[in-house]
Every structure is written in C-alpha cells, then in structure tokens.
Design a binder for these strands. Structure first.
Lengths: 361, 361
DNA sequence: AATCGGCCCCAAAGCGGTTTGGATAGGGAA
DNA sequence: TTCCCTATCCAAACCGCTTTGGGGCCGATT
C-alpha cells in the first residue's frame, strides 16, 4: 500500500491493473464499475469509484481507443489554399461552435492544415489509420473530389456546404447562398439600382458560385443585363474588397450598389467609398453577407448596421457537430441534408438609387 | 490470395498481421521493414514496402500510439472566456503557423475549447489520459495556475506568452510587449502628444498588463502624468475600439493619439475618428499593435499603413511548434525562453501633435 | 573440424484498456 | 434437502502495433 502510494507519486498516473490490485478486485470488475455496467454490485461500484477519485485514476485514452475501436475525435482538414478564405475569422467561429458540442459529447477535435497536393493523401491517412471517428469537410469546391473519396473510405463525414457536380448522396449542412444573394440583389434592384457590383469569393468555391448564380438570377428576373465588369471574385480580405470597389467605382458607368461576400471585404469597400467621399446608404448602397463573427459584428454601438444576409457560422458549427456525432453513432442513418435560409436584415447601408436614370451611355 | 483480396475490398483496410501473412513473413519483420530498422535485408524491405504500397496498408494509429507510448499529437486548450480575445483572428493565424510545423513532423493538432470552470480538469485529463505528447498554453494570465499544474503533471508544454507571478521556470515564447508599447508611446510623446489614449485588451491577460506597464513607463520617463480616463481595457473587438475612442475624444481634454492593442479595435477607433471628422495622422495619431493577420493586413493597396509595432503571430505559432516538438523529443533539455522584439513600423497614421500647448486646464 | 560472430528472421511478450465466457456463492422453489 | 437461478466477480482473450530475446544459417577464424 505504502509502496503503491509512493509509486503513484513518482509515476503521477495509475493504471487499471494497479487500481484493481489496490482494491483486491479484478480489472474486469473495476472497468465495469467505472463504466456503469449492471453486473457490479452497488457497494463495489461505490468503493471503486471512490478509490478512482482518491487516486485520481483516469483511463489511458490510447488503450481505451484501441480496445473500443473508437477514437472519440473528429477531424477537420483545412486545405491551405483556402487559408485566406477559410482559416481566418470565419473558420475560427465555426470551430468555436463545433467544439462546444464536441466537449459535451466527449469528443476531441483534431485539426490538420495541409498543403493542397497532399490533401487527398491526408484524408486517406486519417481515415485508414483511424485517427478520428468522423470528418467535417470545409470549403467544398465544385465537383469536390473529397466527397467520393470519403464515401469510398467509408468514414462518416459531413460537408459544411455542398458541392455541385457530385452525384453521390452525402450529408451536408449549407446556407442557401444562392437564395440569400438573390434576395439581396433583388432588394437593391427594387431600390432602383441597376449597376450593382458583386464582390465575391473565389468562384471555384461552391458557395461563391452559388452566390454568383443568385446574383445573376436576380438580375435576369428584372431584365437587367449582367456586366462582367461588375463581378469580381478573389480572396475575402480587406484589401481585395478595396481594390474591387475602387475598380467598379471608376467605371464609366460606376456602380451604385455592392453585394459583398463577407464583412471583411466590406471593410475595404467602405474604405474605398470614403476615399471618394461617398456615403454609404445615401450615395452608394452596400449589402453584405454576414457570418455573425464575434470580433467584427455587424452593427453595434454607433456603427451603421449593414443591410445583410445573416447566418451564424457559429450555429452552423454547432449543428454540424451534432449531425456528425449522430451519424457516427449510427452510420446507417439516411443522409442528413440541411439547407438554412439566411435572414435578410435591413440596415442603414442601403437606400434608393441616387440617379435613377439608366444613363443611356 | 484471392480470398484476402476480396476481404480487403470489403474491409477497406488491412492490418499488419494480414500483410505479414500475405508475404509469408512475421509481423516483426514487416514492422521493422516498414520502419527502416537495420535488421532487415534490403531485398525483404523492398518486397515489404512494395506490398504495403500495393495493398495500401497503413498502420492503425491507435495501436501504434499504444505500443509506442506516443500520441503524435499536440494539444491546444483555449479557455472560452478568452474567446473574443483569442479565438478569433489572432488565434487562427497562430494555429496556421503551428500546424504547418506539425505536419512536417507528423504531429496532429488537437484543439479543445473549454468552459473556464472546467479548464483545469481538462488539462488534467489531457495529460493523465495521455491524449497528447505536449501542450501549448494560450493566453496566459498573470499568475496563471495552469503553469504549475502542467509542471506538476509532468507533460511537456510551452506557453505562448508569459505569466508574471509564476516562480517556477518553464518554457515560453513571448513578444516583448512592454518594450513594444513603450517605444510606441515614446514615439508619440516625441511627436509632441501629451494626451495619449491606451485601448488595451483585458488587463488580467499577461500581455495586456505588460503593454500597460510599457505605456506607463514611457509616460513616466517623459514626466507626463498618467490619466485613468486615457486607459481602457476590454475585449479586442471593433465596437470596443469605437466606444473607447469616442469616450476619450469626448473628454474635456481630448486625446490626440491612440495606442491600440490590435488591428481589430483599431478599425473601431478609425470609425470614431471619421464620425468626428478627424483625420488619422494629421488630426489624431494612431499606433497599433499589428499581429500581421492575413485577412486584415496593415497597409496594402490604397490603405493608410498604420504606424505599428509588428510581430507575426503566424511566425510565433511556427516557432512555438518547433520548440515544443524539440522538448517532447528531449524533455530534460533546459527550458527555452524566447523573447521577440516587435518592429516599430512607421506608417501614415502618426504625425506631430496638432495643438502642442499642453492646455493647463 | 569446431567455434565464433553477423545477418535475418521469428515467436511471444508487452502497451492498457474492454469484453467474452465461465466460476462461485447465496437465495428461493420444489 | 436438492436443484436451479441470479447476482457478482474473475481469468483470459483481444484490439493492432512495437520490441525483446532468442534461434538458425553461413562464412570466417583458429
């Protein structure tokens, strides 16, 4: 006893065998007592749990994982190409939501950021080496090869977003990006705007392509021709928003309104407008896609709230985690496909078009 | 052979025993061949590696972890209290840097976001259950209890930042926050500013306390009294920057310059200045602490580059990962303590004080 | 020819849990 | 009293890999 005590002090950790020995019980019984199996008497269970508490016994996770066949971890692979798109700001809020749910269910989150060319290999590795029990796929592109790969590998996964062009059925959670931007654009058209600039993310990304489609569809519905000069796509950064806005404001027929893909490039758009002495809302309207990021909220004290299509990426993270955990528990469940509608929140950044005359060149 | 083939197709994965059987070799030999042990002939090694390749064999990570006693993973625990401080923007860039290095060394990154009251338990759990081989401590506060805890648990760890008040020696990497802000403040004083506002993060965070100390020290050196009205601390968000700036601009003796803790609140400061029709650089000077965040770079096309103390948080992430991995390899190494100096980059956001008269009340 | 030392390879024992297939004892039914 | 059943516990197998401690085999040494 004393020997064990001091061994404990030295080792700092204790294993099941030692604990069982200490209690004069078998490992089986101790394990069952701790895991609330019924074939242990209440008296014994109590004794065991008390001892576990006193000696601060915690089962070795690695051994547990091997024995149970579960890793109790969920993988997030982030391609480094989409670092600017994903990693910053948006991704971290998503992760915050997801990990909340993971913690509740005892899951860990393993994040790999990986170079593009290694990406498929990384998925293979993660799945076949059984590092995780499930995977969340971020930033799907059109015809995303990761989806058939993961289906083939047979590991539960969930796509945050969707991938047009992928035939197979899979689980996903997406915001209706097309509809959101369609409504935003429509709204601007209703206000009389005819020169509406789209500051989009990279359009090989599925969400960006859908947003573009929504933009075009709204224009088409009102019979307004699309103008390539009014559509840009690129990294969703502040400087990119600025440059795009400058270019569109310098056109012969400048834009009178913007649809922006995120609050971050919108900061750049605002800066461009200020440079030209234009006022948001009255001179030029801006609608942005608002992911409800905590560090950069839309609105707040004294801030002009942007008219925005809003959908919380943190909530999405939470829900994605829930769905995936459920699928891990029962992989034969039919695929979950959730399409969220974004709110269109009216703010002070939009107003009727200043010069309604369509300026016949 | 044919039977094994089809079994492979069904299972999707193959284990060492099966591979060994297929090759008419023992598991020992196969394992040694794959892991480049010398006691295997080149011919055999070649055969084994080819077979492994052909059957796409990958060792089960869980079994490997149990057998080797290493998890090949590094833990990051982020207290949810500092979500706004850490998780967003800054944290994700740090992680991007770190995971680059992890990938090179075959380590995985496990991230836990956890409620404050559970934090210590989480560390205990992670360490004793051996989920990871090392831990990076984020957002140290003054007298941070995590440091003695982790020392006691005997798991290699590295603090990003430092913790004043902790006696024991430990490994850390920090930026000289005090010096950086001291220099920034000094610079503003040299330009003739006497009413300099400090928009700081929460000052129980160690880095924020040090920055305040640097601010105060610069004032003291020039004999300028500190004014509590000119010092705020809080979340490093846009709205907070705005509110702090507004309050300081509304004082009887308003500020003529700001020292800001991050690019994010600086966005709010800029907004406050615009509201009052004040121009950055000429009317009011701003120096900010720039973590070189990719989505919100300082400067860029057409952007006024802020005068800033700059230090890349992504580089810090990279270096932290390197140090920790080294410590994991050899835990008896003396503690590494790296203090980085931040650059003071001059930009367009600072200028001589507009009204040099100290306004004797 | 007998011994020795490398070189290759193998069987088996871990790693630290969970889970299977009994064994034992005590209580109730016949 | 005898028999059976249930409640409780245990020894051993197992998860899939690494690593220890040999054991042949072969050419070289004496």
């Amino acid at each position: 006893m004393v020997a064990l005590q001091s061994a404990l002090e030295i080792k700092g950790a204790m294993n099941l065998r030692e604990l069982a020995q200490l209690l004069n019980l078998s490992q089986t019984t101790v394990s069952r007592a701790l895991n609330d199996y019924p074939e242990v008497s209440e008296a014994t269970r109590k004794k065991v749990k008390e001892a576990a508490q006193r000696y601060d016994y915690r089962p070795n996770a690695r051994a547990q994982q091997l024995a149970t066949g579960r890793s109790m971890a969920i993988g997030h692979v982030i391609p480094s190409s989409s670092q600017h798109e994903m990693v910053n700001v948006v991704f971290s809020d998503f992760v915050a939501g997801a990990s909340e749910v993971y913690a509740q269910h005892g899951y860990d989150m393993v994040v790999s950021m990986v170079a593009d060319q290694d990406e498929m290999q990384t998925y293979r590795d993660i799945a076949q080496r059984q590092k995780v029990d499930g995977i969340i796929v971020h930033g799907p592109i059109q015809n995303d090869p990761r989806i058939p790969l993961l289906s083939e590998l047979g590991i539960p996964f969930l796509v945050h977003g969707r991938s047009t062009g992928v035939d197979a059925s899979y689980s996903w959670l997406d915001v209706n990006n097309r509809r959101a931007v369609e409504r935003a654009t429509s709204y601007l058209l209703d206000l009389g705007h005819r020169r509406i600039g789209l500051v989009n993310g990279f359009e090989h990304m599925d969400f960006a392509a859908r947003r573009r489609a929504g933009y075009l569809s709204a224009l088409a519905a009102k019979g307004v021709p699309a103008d390539p000069d009014l559509m840009t796509s690129g990294e969703m950064t502040e400087p990119n928003g600025y440059e795009a806005a400058c270019a569109m404001l310098d056109l012969d027929e400048p834009v009178t309104a913007f649809v922006s893909s995120s609050i971050v490039p919108t900061l750049g758009i605002r800066r461009a407008l200020e440079d030209q002495g234009l006022r948001i809302g009255s001179d030029v309207s801006v609608v942005c896609y608002d992911d409800a990021i905590s560090a950069l909220p839309n609105g707040g004290p004294g801030a002009p709230t942007y008219t925005a299509t809003r959908s919380s990426v943190r909530d999405a993270g939470r829900r994605c985690a829930e769905i995936l955990i459920e699928r891990i528990g029962n992989p034969t469940l039919p695929h979950v496909q959730e399409l969220w509608e974004a709110d269109l929140v009216l703010g002070g950044s939009t107003g009727v078009a200043a010069t309604p005359e369509p300026a016949d060149r």
